[in-house]
């Protein structure tokens, strides 16, 4: 089972993590992997913390990733990286969007948004931090932030043997194709 890889995409409802997972899964399937994916629907979508899990390999049993079991975490929001940090393997990689969504508890003044989230992650894990929202806005549409992060994830995992540009082209709507291809490249290049 050692060849099974596990990716955890985390963020706040509405940030587009599901589309990112869709692109990832399509590419992995075309490359011949067995794939399982799990996401949470319903009440947890409304402004809540959301996670999408993708696992792939020759044969995948569990669609779920437990604590200490993810090879990579892609955090669409930086506090979410901290929330799910204990799901990451000790030698796992984190791609973190340097972007803050306060959430209702903080906005209502009932709690403080934590300081030092990025530093805490960097002190414990191999991290790639980028300002994906800024990059996406620079490309003309903040919504393609999810594909920027996807580009960084591909680079971080070294999954270059799949033609991701083709997969993205086939997954996103025609009118957003060029934007998303640019977003993918920008994300890929944002990671060293």
């Amino acid at each position: 089972m050692s060849q099974v890889k596990s990716a955890l995409l985390v963020g706040v409802g509405g940030q587009g993590a599901i589309l990112t997972a869709k692109v990832l899964v399509k590419g992995l399937m075309e490359a011949g992997f067995d794939v399982k994916m799990s996401e949470v629907h319903g009440m947890s979508q409304r402004g809540g913390s959301v996670s999408t899990q993708v696992r792939w390999g020759d044969k995948v049993y569990s669609p779920l990733i437990g604590k200490g079991a993810a090879d990579i975490i892609v955090a669409f929001e930086k506090m979410e990286a901290v929330r799910y940090a204990d799901y990451l393997k000790s030698d796992g990689v984190a791609v973190i969007n340097d972007y803050e969504i306060e959430g209702a508890t903080v906005a209502a003044g009932l709690a403080q948004y934590p300081e030092g989230t990025l530093e805490a992650m960097q002190a414990h894990f191999h991290c790639h931090v980028l300002k994906a929202e800024e990059i996406a806005r620079g490309l003309g549409n903040a919504k393609c932030m999810n594909i920027v992060l996807f580009g960084s994830m591909v680079k971080a995992l070294g999954m270059d043997d799949i033609d991701w540009e083709k997969v993205i082209g086939e997954t996103v709507p025609e009118k957003f194709r060029e934007l998303n291809l640019k977003a993918y490249k920008a994300g890929y290049e944002a990671v060293l």
Partner: peptide, 12 residues
């Protein structure tokens, strides 16, 4: 095997 990063997330 997990790592404690020392910063906790606020509930959403």
């Amino acid at each position: 095997e997990t790592k404690e990063v020392g910063v906790s997330a606020v509930s959403r």
